[in-house]
């Protein structure tokens, strides 16, 4: 980069007026991304934001980087083609719960299995925002919406478990109302080599207000949030008074008065089995015996080659001897002469 001045978050704001509803959780995510990017030490022109369709997918218009607001559910596929051919770029995918889990579900899992080095920010508001409030594939069963007046009968997807099942190499969850946590997780996602899947709980205050209230309100949040930190015991509770232990494969909640912190489950981001167990802490928070919802990084696998690496290794090997001879190729192996 030739500019010596460090970029600021303002440098990443485009001149377009931000048009989300006042109070929408999307604002916070925009702000955190604009805050994180200057710290990454890369010139602006190397960033590309690709989105699908949805309120969340308007995001690229507000970023003064390269961007594409594409079609519903397909940002993942577009990003794969871009990253395969331009691996030096920093490619980000902005998607919603409908965009990535519903119409784009197929591309989502296939991108994860291929593992291109891109960053996914999944804005999960458990609703279709842009189309004005129908239930989404992450809405809880029984949800009453415009399209489900007596409650939806669909079971929801659990995006974290889905991502792990698709062999994602970086899986994390954060939420709009915790800027610091969000920034830290987004940054870690960026640093990961491979696809980083960051689910962000995002409040849609118009069509699904308070969906994540228990995780954000002072009174309830400490009882309901489990903040995972690598190498640290899993502790939560109003007074940090509870912990998680493993009884075989079965997680149990224990009181720290009875158990020493050393005997608790120590979070290990590289352990897929344990990440899978944590991903299943997905019960209805209104039930009395539910487990706290984990936030932070569930799983990191740094040993899987990225798609763009493998793809370009083959290209480099083939191109090592220089560009082929086109005239030879066109002539093929067998020719004859007519005089």
């Amino acid at each position: 980069m030739e500019t010596t001045e460090k970029l600021t978050s303002k440098d990443f704001a485009s001149d377009q007026e931000v048009r989300w509803c006042p109070g929408c959780g999307d604002y916070s995510i925009l702000k955190q991304v604009q805050t994180v990017l200057p710290d990454l030490g890369r010139p602006k022109e190397e960033f590309v934001f690709i989105s699908g369709i949805g309120c969340s997918s308007r995001f690229p218009y507000y970023m003064d980087t390269f961007g594409m607001h594409s079609i519903h559910g397909r940002a993942t596929a577009i990003a794969t083609g871009l990253k395969a051919t331009r691996p030096e770029l920093s490619v980000w995918i902005i998607t919603g719960d409908g965009d990535s889990m519903s119409i784009g579900g197929n591309h989502f899992i296939h991108m994860l299995r291929r593992n291109p080095d891109v960053n996914v920010l999944l804005f999960n508001n458990q609703i279709y925002g842009l189309t004005k409030g129908q239930y989404s594939p992450t809405s809880e069963q029984g949800k009453v919406t415009k399209s489900s007046p007596i409650g939806s009968v669909d079971y929801p997807f659990n995006p974290i478990a889905l991502a792990l099942g698709a062999d994602a190499t970086f899986v994390a969850r954060t939420l709009d109302r915790d800027p610091k946590h969000q920034q830290a997780v987004i940054k870690r996602g960026y640093e990961h080599k491979g696809t980083s899947m960051v689910e962000i709980y995002q409040n849609c205050n118009v069509f699904n207000d308070g969906a994540f209230e228990v995780y954000t309100e002072k009174g309830s949040k400490k009882e309901n949030i489990l903040l995972m930190e690598n190498g640290k015991p899993l502790i939560f509770g109003a007074n940090d008074d509870k912990g998680i232990m493993l009884d075989g494969f079965k997680p149990i909640i224990v009181n720290l008065a009875d158990v020493s912190a050393n005997d608790l489950w120590i979070h290990d981001e590289t352990d897929l089995v344990k990440a899978t167990i944590l991903s299943r802490f997905y019960d209805d928070p209104t039930h009395p015996d539910h487990k706290p919802r984990p936030f932070g990084v569930f799983y990191v696998n740094s040993n899987k080659n990225t798609f763009d690496e493998l793809f370009n290794n083959q290209m480099d090997a083939a191109m090592a001897k220089g560009l082929g001879d086109l005239d030879k190729l066109i002539a093929g192996n067998e020719t004859w002469v007519v005089n």
Partner: peptide
């Protein structure tokens, strides 16, 4: 993308 000063959004 990658060209300085050409940051723009399409869609």
């Amino acid at each position: 993308p990658g060209t300085k000063g050409l940051e723009h959004r399409i869609g």
